[in-house]
Amino acid sequence: MPTPFEVQKTTNETKLTIRGSLDINTAPALAEEIDKIVAARPTKVSVDLAALDLIDSSGVAALVKLYKGVRSAGGAVNIAGARDQPLAIFKLLRMDKVFNL
């Protein structure tokens, strides 16, 4: 199964791009990467969901883990680009307002 995410780091920002399906099969690998991102205590993390087609509650949990982890260390998280089914899920869970989607 192809890895549905990519991490790019610059001096000012960590950019996480997620594509395809973020679900119970793919979220564990992302969660491991999120642990690494959070451990680095970044000041800013941008998450691009424009290429994300499907998400389930396991995928949402991984993003919540990232959001909480970065913010608890004083960093900022910007999540953008959610559309279609993923956006519907965030709205249903009322996380669209938390994530400013």
Partner: peptide
């Protein structure tokens, strides 16, 4: 149930699946 108010502390990291199915 999901928390009434979502904050950094209350954002759920599990228990969302049945809520999604029932609501959808």
């Amino acid at each position: 149930p999901l928390p009434d108010e979502l904050t950094d502390e209350t954002l759920p990291e599990g228990g969302m699946g049945i809520h999604i199915a029932k609501t959808m």
